[in-house]
């Protein structure tokens, strides 16, 4: 598998999680295609999207896993947490139940990802102001309490979608610069430079391990 014509320095893996119907797939579609997808079918297992962005003058390829919100796929989707450098946790501002489930999503994420994974909370469907069920303030408070980044966005209008993805990438990049993120850890969710020979299955993971046992 060749690296293709793309010239990028890093691959960042993202995961999008949240309850069914909060608009995870639409957010991804809006971000990769810059289009709103109406009547989007339920995701089965996981979907996948990529886009190359630029952070601090470096080209970065985002590999984004869009997971199914349905409970029955939880086993399948759990596999994808492990390698994620960024997790976009989505709820629907017009449905309080989706907001209420955030803490269980957060626990899952914390358990399955490494401590440096950037978690970004997104309150989707902010274009439906009239049907708002969750105030900005309480969500903001929840985010602050848990050390999450937060924004209200709309996959329909595209408002703040780009920002959420890019801000996450900036934060991850910052971690790399600070040396907090170990590029050679298998579960860092970051790969340096496209394909070292045979990039993939066996990324060098000599040291990191602690999390593997913790599950």
């Amino acid at each position: 598998m060749s690296a293709g014509p793309y010239n990028y320095s890093y691959i960042f893996k993202y995961i999008i999680i949240g309850d069914m119907g909060v608009g995870k797939s639409c957010l991804l579609h809006q971000f990769t295609e810059k289009k709103f997808m109406s009547d989007c079918p339920h995701t089965i297992g996981v979907e996948f999207g990529t886009r190359i962005i630029e952070v601090a003058g470096k080209k970065i390829k985002l590999q984004i896993w869009d997971t199914a919100g349905q409970e029955r796929f939880r086993a399948v989707t759990r596999s994808y947490y492990r390698g994620a450098a960024g997790a976009l946790m989505v709820y629907d501002i017009t449905r309080r139940s989706t907001y209420n489930h955030l803490s269980s999503w957060l626990t899952d994420t914390r358990n399955l990802t490494n401590p440096n994974t950037v978690i970004f909370l997104i309150g989707n469907k902010c274009d439906l102001e009239g049907q708002r069920d969750v105030t900005y303030e309480e969500a903001k408070q929840f985010a602050d309490e848990n050390g999450l980044m937060f924004v209200e966005a709309s996959a329909k209008t595209g408002q703040n979608v780009e920002e959420a993805f890019l801000e996450t990438a900036r934060k991850i990049y910052q971690s790399i610069q600070d040396g907090r993120l170990d590029l050679y850890a298998a579960d860092s969710g970051v790969q340096h430079k496209p394909s070292q020979p045979g990039r993939n299955t066996l990324t060098n993971d000599q040291q990191s391990n602690k999390d593997n046992c913790a599950c």
């Binding site: 598998m1 893996k13 996981v46 996948f48 590999q63 896993w65 759990r78 596999s79 994808y80 492990r82 390698g83 298998a186 579960d187 993939n200 299955t201």
Partner: peptide
């Protein structure tokens, strides 16, 4: 590949 990687992790 990415999907396989995830499963190998699991």
């Amino acid at each position: 590949q990415a999907q396989s990687d995830a499963q190998i992790d699991t």
